[in-house]
Amino acid sequence: MSFIWSLIIGGVIGWLAGLITGRDIPGGIFGNIIAGFIGAWLGSLILGNWGPDIGGFAVIPAIIGSIILVLIVSFILRRVGNNRKYGEA
């Protein structure tokens, strides 16, 4: 049951990061879950584990890490899309 709880919290964190940045996360709900998990890892690496803890996630660093991740992924996808649009590889 704790695994399912972690998936839900990871999805919510990824969804919040997408809302805050105003950018879509590729992959729908699975993209949100992945962004939540990777963002939580990234946020705890950068900021440590502080603030409220829900489902094994330090919420504030996880959201900040997910925001950073969403911005990086959207920047990369935009660059790749622009290169394909103009015929560059």
Rank of each mutant, 00 (worst) to 15 (best):
R23F: 10
G27F: 07
I33D: 06
R79Q: 12
V80F: 10
I34N: 06
G39H: 09
N32G: 05
G48A: 04
F3E: 15
I34K: 02
G65T: 08
I20A: 09
L42Y: 03
N82P: 07
D53V: 15
I63E: 09
A89Y: 15
I60Y: 10
S66C: 06
I9N: 08
I34W: 05
I60N: 02
G27W: 09
F37P: 09
L45Y: 12
I67Y: 03
A40F: 04
S2W: 12
D24F: 05
I76G: 04
I8Q: 03
G43Q: 00
G31I: 01
L7F: 13
I9C: 06
G10F: 09
A62G: 10
G36F: 05
I8A: 14
F3C: 06
R23S: 11
R23M: 13
G87M: 07
I33C: 05
F30L: 15
V59H: 07
N83G: 12
A58G: 07
W15F: 13
S74H: 09
N83F: 14
N49C: 03
F75L: 12
K85H: 13
R84F: 15
I38V: 12
I64C: 10
F3G: 11
D53E: 15
G36C: 08
G27M: 08
W5E: 14
G65W: 03
N83Q: 14
R23E: 14
D53L: 13
G10W: 03
G39A: 03
G56K: 01
G22V: 10
G55H: 07
I4W: 11
G81F: 11
I38T: 05
S66A: 13
A89V: 15
P26Y: 04
A17P: 00
S74Y: 02
V12W: 04
I60M: 11
V70A: 07
G87L: 11
I54D: 11
R78P: 06
D24S: 13
I76K: 01
I54T: 01
V70R: 00
L7V: 12
S66Y: 04
L69E: 01
G65M: 00
I34P: 08
I34S: 07
R23K: 15
D53G: 07
N82Y: 09
I34T: 06
I9V: 15
G87A: 11
D24N: 12
I33F: 02
W50V: 14
G39T: 00
L77F: 14
F57S: 09
G87R: 08
S74K: 05
P61I: 10
R78W: 15
G56W: 06
I20G: 03
F75C: 04
G56T: 08
I67D: 05
G11F: 10
V59L: 13
I20N: 09
G10D: 01
G36K: 03
L7W: 10
W5K: 14
G11Q: 04
L45W: 12
S6F: 08
P52R: 11
T21M: 00
M1F: 02
I72K: 10
R79F: 12
D24H: 04
I29Y: 13
I33Q: 00
T21Y: 09
V12P: 03
R84S: 14
F37K: 02
